[in-house]
């Protein structure tokens, strides 16, 4: 199934505007696994006939990994350029599938002059259901045992715990919690720019610890809502040789699949 993905530039050329900008993010644009999440989300946007657009080649890293790595200068360079681009199109509303982009756009751009209504895709999907444009029934996920991993920058940092869980419950699935969840959720190990470096010496990798907690729930699917968490948990499952039994899926993929998109 092909997808319709207008860019802000192309819409402007036609004298049109988009209601919301989908901020794809670097992982969503370049990482093979994350690209599938991007596509699933776009399929839902197309299916619900949502007026949206992407920045495409005009999008650039939000600067989050640079900031967490300590390079405030590079972060602000990225942020101010992105704000300039967004403002040139008069963007007011942004949705993103990456909690890191979400957090930075929502919390750190305002002080640099970028004021937007920023939503994470799980919040956005929930609002689509609420306004009636998206219907979700369990389908193949009905009765499946699913556990949800809270991304730190979505959960603890921004207190969004319920939107992703509500979506999973809409699938008529059995949502089971890990021993560390919500405010106590354990990091997947990728945050704070750790994604891009080897871990310091220790006796275990963080993603293995978290994967073990997830496997303890006996879930068939580990739902994630962050491309980086997805990568870390996927690696963890492979390490545990459970990749045939347990799948790591983004909440958007679950919703798209349930709707046969």
């Amino acid at each position: 199934m092909s997808v319709e993905v207008p860019t802000l530039a192309s819409l402007q050329a036609q004298g049109k505007k988009a209601a919301v900008v989908f901020w794809v993010g670097c992982a969503g644009s370049f990482d093979d696994r994350a690209k599938k999440i991007t596509k699933a989300f776009v399929k839902i946007l197309n299916h619900t006939q949502t007026s949206f657009a992407v920045l495409g080649t005009e999008e650039s890293c939000t600067g989050d990994p640079a900031k967490r790595a300590g390079n405030e200068f590079l972060f602000q360079m990225q942020a101010l350029q992105n704000i300039s681009t967004l403002d040139s199109y008069g963007v007011t509303k942004i949705v993103t599938t990456c909690p890191h982009c979400f957090n930075t756009l929502k919390n750190e751009y305002p002080e640099l002059g970028g004021h937007y209504k920023v939503m994470h895709h799980t919040q956005f999907l929930k609002s689509l259901i609420k306004e009636g444009s998206l219907k979700v029934e369990g389908g193949s996920y009905k009765g499946k045992r699913i556990t949800y991993h809270d991304p730190c920058y979505l959960g603890r940092a921004n207190k969004i715990f319920e939107a992703p869980r509500d979506l999973i419950k809409k699938l008529d699935a059995e949502l089971v919690e890990m021993k560390a969840c919500k405010t106590k959720g354990l990091c997947c190990g990728a945050g704070g720019a750790q994604m891009f470096k080897d871990a310091e010496e220790g006796d275990k990798e963080i993603n293995i610890e978290r994967t073990e907690q997830a496997l303890d729930t006996q879930a068939e699917i580990i739902a994630a809502a962050c491309p980086f968490c997805n990568t870390m948990m996927t690696d963890g499952i492979k390490n545990k040789k459970q990749e045939d039994e347990v799948k790591i899926m983004d909440v958007a993929e679950l919703i798209a699949n349930a709707n046969n998109l």
Binding site: V3, V5, T7, V24, C26, G28, S29, F30, D31, K35, T38, K39, V54, G56, T57, E59, S60, C61, G63, P65, A66, L74, M77, Q78, M195, F196
Partner: peptide
């Protein structure tokens, strides 16, 4: 990030290839 606007060495021109 400095050179091509992403934490990985991919060209910004390829941002829409996933489509």
């Amino acid at each position: 990030i400095e050179n091509n606007g992403a934490p990985w060495p991919f060209s910004n021109q390829d941002r829409l290839q996933w489509i």
